[in-house]
Design a protein around this nucleic acid. Structure first.
Lengths: 120, 120
DNA sequence: CAGAATCCAACCGGATACTG
DNA sequence: CAGTATCCGGTTGGATTCTG
């Protein structure tokens, strides 16, 4: 399975997100990919079927469009999700989980159970 | 198992860390407790035995003392770790994982496996 | 040794307005 | 509809200095 991580610079030359994590601890490196705000939930919401952008944003409840877009872009870059444009009018965009993304579901399942069992 | 989460205000009246997470998604709520920078790795490093503050900071490699202290305080507040002061001279402080903290290890194990299997 | 205090630059994320 | 662009206050986190 191959993934590409690009370090980009935006129009103003600022460094854009995601230097690769350098710590030797695998827990920490994994967290930088799956952890943080919204990434886990986004992946979870895509687990069964592709979801449209606006549906996703609504389901998350509390995340702004800007946030959702930003996280989705990062997750695209790491190969966790795939973006599909459907050229209807007005057009639609769906996001679906990739095969690589699916490998993280077991882990998220475990987190979900933990939260529920301990009233988090 | 009981945990208390306090919202404190510091000397200057600013709100200190951690409003409880309100989203309905258990994944998201769990992430706010276990996710983010360093929390997972800290817990993991404590899994076998109590560890002294400076050892912990060194093992994490890359986290400043300030960061480690801050994360440890949050994790104390959520009941994941316990702080022990040993009054030798010079004194020592160790941190150990609580029973509640141990319930999260399965989840961290899963993350570790994922990171390693996919060269994260 | 294990922090607390302070300073400060970088980043984050919400609100709003605009676009193909 | 699915974003992008911009503004902007608040938070984060590193570096440094101080302390019991």
């Amino acid at each position: 399975m191959s993934r590409t991580v690009e370090i980009e610079t935006d129009s103003k030359g600022r460094k854009q997100a995601m230097e690769p994590c350098l710590t030797p601890c695998p827990i920490e490196r994994g967290m930088r990919i799956l952890g943080g705000k919204w990434k886990g939930s986004i992946l979870w919401h895509l687990k069964d079927q592709p979801v449209r952008f606006s549906d996703l944003a609504r389901q998350l409840g509390g995340a702004s469009k800007k946030m959702v877009t930003q996280r989705l872009r990062e997750m695209e870059a790491t190969g966790l999700v795939k973006r599909n444009v459907i050229s209807t009018k007005p057009f639609a965009v769906t996001y679906e989980i990739t095969d690589f993304g699916k490998t993280a579901l077991l882990f998220l399942e475990e987190l979900k159970k933990w939260s529920e069992e301990h009233d988090i």
